[in-house]
């Protein structure tokens, strides 16, 4: 089927299997490999993106449901001012170890900061509850988000 969606601000017209996962379309058809597959069943958050402004697991979304939608992936976010603040804060705070969960974490952080620009630790923990990190124990990811909120004051 033919669909149209806006990905990172750019209108994309695609001819797809309607049941293909948004994750596979992003990675294989659009070469946006920053979105990772960790589990394929919505448990880990590595495939997070924003769809119409909402944080979603792209491994669970049939592409047919994306027709007419706006998708923001890590590539789009990272090239924005807010993305730059977030990714730099993550590097500075050592929120990143192996890095496989990190793009998803950054998207979850963006989603949280849009609602709560100055989150406390508990709010961050709740906002990131669907994003599994096996390396850090999360403490430094929380530090990174707090650092971003501080450095990017006014951006969200």
């Amino acid at each position: 089927m033919k669909i149209e969606m806006t990905v990172n601000g750019e209108l994309r017209k695609l001819d797809v299997n309607p049941l293909s996962r948004l994750l596979d379309i992003l990675r294989n058809d659009l070469s946006l490999t920053g979105t990772k597959e960790g589990c394929g069943e919505g448990e880990c958050g590595a495939c997070s993106a924003l769809m119409n402004g909402l944080l979603v697991n792209t491994c669970l979304i049939p592409i047919a449901q994306c027709d007419g939608s706006e998708i923001l992936t890590i590539e789009g976010l990272a090239s924005s001012k807010r993305g730059e603040v977030l990714t730099e804060a993550f590097a500075e705070a050592h929120s990143v170890q192996c890095g496989f969960c990190t793009p998803g974490m950054v998207l979850a952080a963006e989603s949280l900061l849009r609602k709560t620009p100055k989150p406390d630790e508990q709010q961050i923990r709740e906002g990131l509850a669907g994003n599994i990190c096996r390396c850090t124990g999360y403490d430094m990811i929380i530090d990174g988000i707090q650092l971003a909120a501080e450095k990017g004051d006014g951006l969200w």
């Binding site: 769809m51 944080l55 979603v56 669970l60 979850a108 989603s111 509850a129």
Partner: peptide, 9 residues
Amino acid sequence: IAAPALRNR
């Protein structure tokens, strides 16, 4: 139920 991203779908 689950986590924020899942509850968004």
